[in-house]
């Protein structure tokens, strides 16, 4: 059963590596941001599977922090610039 969890984590890591290509080449910043969001989600999945396979429950908390920081990053990215137009 642990083998299966590690295998699934391996598959998710492969999709993460694919998403990295979109972060690197993505034509617009919005592309990069949403690819980074997908990376965060697959990172959460990997952490959950690792926590179950290796028997380290503290990794569930790390997954929780991953979810939190995805929110923070999207908020920082889509923040409207209030002082736009007033120069630097």
């Amino acid at each position: 059963m642990d083998e299966f969890y590690i295998g699934a984590a391996l598959l998710l890591l492969l999709t993460m590596a694919g998403g990295l290509v979109r972060v690197a080449v993505g034509p617009s910043p919005a592309d990069r941001m949403m690819a980074a969001q997908l990376l965060g989600s697959s990172g959460i999945g990997i952490l959950l599977l690792l926590a179950a396979a290796l028997g380290i429950p503290a990794l569930f908390d790390v997954a929780l922090i991953f979810a939190l920081l995805a929110v923070i990053n999207v908020a920082a990215f889509t923040r409207r610039r209030v002082d736009e137009g007033s120069g630097a």
Binding site: A8, L12, T15, R22, M34, L38, S41, G45
Partner: peptide, 29 residues
Amino acid sequence: GAFFFLAGTVGLLRLPDLHSRLHALTKAD
């Protein structure tokens, strides 16, 4: 779940414009 992540990543890489990529991404998420 892994299948949905795989489909989301393929969509993120192959779909032509930003909004369809966003659509693929939210499924995986």
